[in-house]
Simulated scan of single mutants.
Amino acid sequence: MPMPDDCRHAPASTKGRSTIDERANHCFGCGPENPQGLHLVFSTDTSVPGHPTATAHFQLDRLHEGPPGYVHGGIIATLLDEAMSKINRPLNVLAVTRHMEIDYLRPVPLYQSLTVTSHHLHREGRKLFHRAEILSSDGTTLARGKGIFIELDRALLARAGFTQPED
């Protein structure tokens, strides 16, 4: 199956292979084919070996409103989770969220340029520990999250007909 042109968060080393995230074009966070999705486009930085970061710039509107003029808390959680999930790929793993903690530090405004950035902290076996934050245009941290992701078993994925990045 050809990879959609809009999967810009995937490193060049994985282009041309059909992975789970390339089949999931309707992902609410980054899926290009989801008309209600956030359509986030991430860039990854792998300049520090073993500690990739992922960043997306975005602006939300009234469809994402919680309190008047501000982003809904569930959307904030989604943004942080999505950002943290994007740094599994440069680590050559496919993983799912096991646990996430969120600190809502300040209201996240609608109709303003915002950034979500995630960082890999460390790994313990199949557990990957990440953090993410949402920043205003002036660099103020509005929300912060920590997550634990569990690497999926490669043999199980292969039996299901999926591939994933290789080590």
Rank of each mutant, 00 (worst) to 15 (best):
L38K: 09
H99Q: 13
E22W: 10
G161K: 12
E65I: 02
K146F: 14
H39Q: 14
D103P: 01
H64Y: 08
H9A: 06
G69N: 01
R89E: 13
V71W: 09
H51K: 14
S136N: 08
A158H: 13
A132S: 15
G29C: 03
A95L: 03
T163L: 02
E151M: 10
Y111D: 14
L94I: 12
L110W: 02
T163M: 00
T117Q: 14
E133M: 11
G139K: 09
S113L: 03
H119Y: 15
P11S: 02
A77C: 14
H26T: 04
H120A: 14
R154I: 00
L40T: 12
N88H: 09
A77T: 14
A83G: 08
M1L: 08
R89D: 11
F28K: 01
S47D: 13
G74L: 07
G125R: 11
T140P: 02
L40E: 15
R62M: 08
A158G: 06
N92S: 08
Q112S: 05
Q112P: 02
L38S: 04
F58R: 12
L63Y: 13
H39P: 02
I148L: 11
G74Y: 07
G147K: 12
F58A: 15
R17T: 15
C27F: 01
T78I: 08
H122F: 13
E124T: 06
Q59A: 13
A12K: 12
I148A: 09
Q36H: 13
L38W: 10
I134W: 04
R98N: 10
H99L: 08
L40P: 10
D81V: 01
L40H: 11
S47T: 15
E124K: 06
A143T: 06
Q36E: 15
T14N: 00
P68N: 09
A77E: 01
H120L: 03
S85G: 15
D153K: 05
R159G: 05
A158L: 13
A155H: 08
T141I: 13
Y111H: 12
V96W: 06
E133N: 13
Q164T: 10
R144C: 05
T163N: 08
V108M: 04
E65W: 01
P32K: 06
K15P: 00
R123E: 14
V93N: 07
G29T: 06
K127Y: 03
T115L: 04
H120K: 08
P11T: 00
L91M: 15
